[in-house]
Design a protein around this nucleic acid. Structure first.
Length: 422
RNA sequence: GUGGGUGUGGCCUAAGGGAUAAGGCACCUGGUUGUGGCCCAGGAGAUUGUGGGUUCGAGUCCCACCAUCCACCCCA
């Protein structure tokens, strides 16, 4: 038999890592609920076309990172590479535009991108996602940004940098793209080969080129902020005003370009140190045209997606710890046949009474059972043997002090419940 | 898709081309009748990632593949 291995780029989340996952997801969910967000779960796979049209066929995500397959009915389906397209599809499909607007939704779960794994990058990873649908107010952009900021701040993150930009709208962006293109056409011999190609195919991407020789050209490139239409400029100005009013630091980065085509106006990312070259712990922005692209009523929207693995990686490198998950404080040890039966009955009763309890399996010596109790971190060991049974008691040992006392069987449940709590 | 590093029991590590691949952690069992942690003894657990090749002889050298890590790209 061949030994099986997890597929490339996937990870088993082992028990020892679960405290992080529970802590982070609980915290995020509480935060979202506190601001009136409701949970939505959408399918892990959708029609391939949904992502192709929503995200944009010229994007890397769609061009080379999708897990696409044909099902037995001949339908082309794709494992979701992100949440927004599915959530907006659900909004349209269920006529959520008749609900009180805006509709605020959060999601949490796995997403999939076929990519070469490296530090902080996986093929299956998890996102915490928030969307506000049906409102153009910059306050919606602000709320999403504030919440995501609070998420990181609440988890204790240090050295965050909030990158902010506006990517314009269909009215003003094309004009800027032309200006940028013209500018680059005049500098073709100074930039890298990739940028020469980008100038034609995806001009905005030249702005986040990392090649040394391209930097001077980028530095002198025209900024989109100078070409926004009145509406976009006003929207951006208002958002910044709120952020300034609240004293939230951010870095205006006119080179911030996002990899999904649906973005309009606000775009932002949060960068953190400590997870290798992949610094972004979340990305988001406004997507006022998406609902229409997907065949629905024109509906503005703004949202953010945070990568949970990256959050946890940052927490670990920054030394942020989380409380351990609870385990039973009571261990039931037993000796002999009759005692085992009584132990089984007692464990059942204890659990029904809300007392978490381990029991020993097999016919083992007391020493071995004690060792197990110790290693599992039990606070109390209840010892049942022929001797105790005959006297109608159980010996209860406090593992922290080593003190041991006999407790009558009829009062044992309440005795333990008092001490264990709950 | 491109480039580089690394693959020895569950984990960490040792073995100058030469014996039944060594040790630590973890795991299991004991150390007098039924009592944890420390200590001691013992046990189980590896066809050295896979397949070829060089050699009298390969964990060690060469090639290919696979996996993994890191980087580019792109992003969470």
């Amino acid at each position: 038999m061949p030994r099986f291995q997890r597929p490339t780029g996937t990870h088993d989340i082992l028990p020892e890592d679960q405290p992080y996952w529970e802590y982070v997801t609980d915290f995020a969910v509480r935060l979202a609920r506190q601001a009136g967000f409701e949970r939505i779960d959408v399918p892990i796979f959708e029609a391939t076309d949904l992502f192709a049209r929503g995200i944009g066929t010229a994007t890397d995500v769609v061009e080379k990172e999708m897990y696409t397959f044909t099902d037995k009915g001949g339908e082309s389906l794709t494992l979701r590479p992100e949440f927004t397209a599915g959530v907006v599809r659900a909004y349209i499909e269920h006529g959520m535009h008749v609900r009180p607007q805006p509709v605020k939704l959060y999601s949490i779960g796995p997403v999939f991108r076929y990519d070469r794994p490296q530090a902080g990058r996986f093929r299956q990873f998890h996102q915490f996602n928030m969307e506000i649908l049906g409102d153009m107010d910059p306050l919606a952009d602000l709320e999403v940004m504030l919440l995501i900021w609070d998420l990181y701040a609440g988890l204790g993150f240090r050295n965050l940098s909030f990158q902010l930009n506006s990517t314009g709208c269909p009215r003003c962006r094309p004009g800027y793209v032309r200006v940028l293109q013209d500018y680059y056409l005049g500098h073709q011999n100074e930039v890298c080969e990739d940028c020469r190609r980008r100038t034609e195919r995806n001009p905005l991407r030249v702005l986040d080129c990392k090649v040394e020789t391209c930097q001077p050209v980028i530095a002198a490139a025209p900024s989109i902020l100078d070409y926004l239409c009145d509406e976009c400029a006003e929207h951006f100005a208002q958002l910044r005003e709120y952020l300034d009013m609240l004293g939230r630091p951010y870095i205006l980065n006119h080179r911030l370009v996002r990899g999904l085509d649906y973005y309009t106006k606000t775009v932002f990312e949060v960068w953190a140190a400590g997870i290798g070259a992949q610094a972004a712990v979340c990305g988001g922005g406004r997507y006022d045209g998406l609902a229409e692209i997907l065949g629905g009523p024109s509906t503005p929207g703004v949202g953010v997606a945070a990568g949970i693995e990256r959050i946890i990686m940052v927490m670990k490198t920054q030394g942020l710890t989380v409380p351990p998950l609870p385990t039973p404080a009571v261990f039931l040890a037993h000796l002999g046949d009759r005692a085992r039966r009584e132990a089984v009955r007692l464990a059942d009763e204890l659990r029904h009474a809300g007392v978490a309890v381990w029991t020993a399996f097999g016919e083992r010596g007391l020493k071995s059972q004690m060792r197990e109790a110790d290693k599992r971190g039990a606070r109390w060991v209840v010892i049942l043997g022929e001797d105790e049974l005959a006297r109608g008691v159980a010996a209860v040992r406090d593992m922290t002090t080593g003190e041991q006392t006999d407790i009558g069987l009829e009062g044992l449940v309440s005795w333990l419940r008092e001490r264990v709590g709950r």
